[in-house]
């Protein structure tokens, strides 16, 4: 090598070539460049979420009421616990990752293998939890009706407890059947019909004098405004046009459509990062087992995927704050 080096008189100077001004290998630096640009992408999404939230400041859903499920505790109001658990799982898998990197520095193949394995398991558990969270969000709990202006009206009883549509609606023999593409023109179909029609809900509401309507508007105390019985009946009969159960990209039973859109998009984009992180971790895991890095006497690849994995954790810390806490 020495023989081919051209002397320029700048040897030993910072930019003289042949050295690393930032003392970081090419691969690691490129991983950092990627992470910074990806961080800006995520901040773009989160800032857009903030924009929409400020825009609908007084009608944004209250997170504790939306995300209040916990496995095996059906019907129990458990705000925050589940997402806190998910956060722990991700932080812990970050810890096992950094332990793997640490073991890699000491060239301990067995330890690296073990910790990488734990990291992958943690990532998979997190993805499963995410899927369960989405399932609850998409299915919804109580259901609501929407007005012509796109607002959501929810139902509560005299004690202020939420009431599900199934407890309100008086079922009628319905003649409305879901249109499927096989029954008509092949390119025309519609989304599955809600379990109850708006007429059934209206009928049930006027029967039960205990029921009230809760609007999506938040008052100064941070609580949703509840209408009186007369106002409720007037509002329901004059404005309600349809029934919504759960959430999709067009409507959701929690509040403004943008709330569900951002939830799906940001947690989905993050979940996709976790997924690709798990895939990359698995590839590196097999390389460790095969002894690739043992032969190189250098476990820097583990460090590089580690950087990506910690970044995914870092993003989750912010998603957790802005979707569930603030």
């Amino acid at each position: 090598m020495e023989a081919t080096v051209v002397r320029t008189g700048t040897e030993g100077k910072t930019w003289g070539g042949g050295n690393e001004p930032l003392k970081s290998s090419y691969g690691k630096m490129m991983m950092w460049f990627f992470i910074v640009s990806d961080a800006l992408t995520f901040s773009g999404f989160l800032a857009a979420y903030g924009f929409s939230r400020f825009k609908f400041m007084d009608s944004w859903p209250i997170a504790d009421e939306v995300f209040n499920h916990f496995p095996f505790l059906h019907g129990v109001d458990a705000p925050m616990y589940y997402v806190a658990l998910m956060t722990f799982i991700l932080i812990f898998s970050s810890v096992t990752m950094v332990l793997a990197v640490d073991a890699g520095h000491q060239l301990k193949k067995g330890k690296v293998t073990f910790y990488m394995f734990l990291t992958i398991i943690g990532g998979i558990i997190f993805l499963g939890s995410q899927a369960w969270e989405w399932k609850n969000f998409i299915n919804g709990t109580y259901g609501a009706v929407y007005t012509e202006g796109g607002n959501i009206l929810q139902f509560i009883d005299g004690d202020g407890h939420r009431v599900a549509l199934s407890d309100i609606a008086i079922a009628e023999a319905s003649s409305r059947v879901e249109h499927e593409s096989r029954n008509g023109i092949w390119y025309e179909s519609e989304k599955s019909l809600p379990s109850y029609s708006i007429g059934e809900v209206k009928a049930g509401f006027s029967e039960n004098s205990d029921l009230l309507i809760r609007t999506q508007v938040v008052n100064d105390e941070g609580e949703k405004i509840i209408l009186s019985r007369e106002e409720s009946i007037a509002k329901l009969n004059s404005e309600a046009v349809g029934v919504v159960e759960g959430a999709n990209l067009t409507r959701n039973e929690y509040g403004p459509p943008l709330f569900a859109d951002f939830f799906f998009f940001i947690t989905g984009f993050h979940g996709f990062h976790v997924f690709s992180g798990v895939v990359i971790n698995i590839i590196i895991f097999f390389n460790v087992i095969l002894g690739t890095y043992e032969r190189r006497k250098n476990y820097e690849m583990v460090e590089k995927v580690g950087l990506y994995w910690h970044f995914v954790d870092l993003v989750w810390v912010f998603v957790f704050t802005f979707f569930y806490l603030v």
Partner: peptide
């Protein structure tokens, strides 16, 4: 990491993100 790399990463992100947040939240 070296000071240069650390600052390149942290300050780039902090400066751009603060700017973005300020603009979007004000507009919202």
């Amino acid at each position: 990491e070296t000071k240069g790399l650390r600052r390149a990463i942290v300050w780039t992100a902090i400066f751009l993100i603060s700017y973005l947040i300020f603009i979007l939240l004000t507009e919202g």
